[in-house]
Write a protein that binds this DNA or RNA. Structure first.
Lengths: 101, 101
DNA sequence: TAGGTATATAGTGATATATCTATGTGGTGA
DNA sequence: TCACCACATAGATATATCACTATATACCTA
């Protein structure tokens, strides 16, 4: 076996994204958005994650900056959705891992 | 669809582990150990990751503390191996993701 | 345009991480 | 036991992150 290692450039690009997502609240938000299957408002997300408005907004912004989420305004509400489906692999890993132990 | 969300307790337990692993050097080390398929010495790991001795030792310790790696001494050398195979799912995710774009 | 609702951002202090240098420790062989 | 090799840890500094409060902004309705 002499497979090539994943190159450092890739690791340096991917690591901070994973790192940012690997936060209890942010994982919860992603899990919620994944389950709902459609963009949800900040208020809904606050309820699902049991956090205050500022925190929710900050976490959402962080993930939006990373390209993990996208947002669109609809009247008074701003709806957030998953922009990069590949982060859901992480959730799959967690679910899979939890199921087998 | 009304699947349950992953509970916060699980997320809080798993997040710091993922977070710690989601570091370019540490991912590289895991990728290397995965590819080699057997425990390797700190010196080998230094070469594979292109880092100095102290840094390598520190990263290894961090992952060992988290239970991701294990170590055993063999003469002058200390060999590190992967203790928790489930972190390899992360590498699979990265490889898979990189392959499809 | 005034007032309300929903969301975003600024500012802050506490805590954690990254990285580097220097030094300590454990094992081996002369 | 001394010197050496492989590795571990301490200490210091810079930087990033967290969680919170207060305040600002955007949009709607009347």
């Amino acid at each position: 076996m002499n497979r090539l290692l994943i190159d450092m450039e890739t690791l340096e690009r991917v690591a901070p994204i994973i790192r940012n997502v690997a936060h209890p609240l942010r994982l919860r938000i992603l899990d919620y958005l994944d389950r709902e299957g459609e963009p949800k408002s900040v208020s809904d997300i606050m309820d699902a994650a049991c956090v205050g408005q500022a925190i929710a907004s900050q976490q959402l912004r962080i993930m939006k900056d990373q390209g993990v989420l996208s947002s669109k305004r609809e009247g008074n509400f701003v709806l957030y959705g998953i922009a990069d489906q590949s982060v859901l692999l992480l959730l799959d890993c967690i679910r899979h891992h939890e199921a087998h132990k």
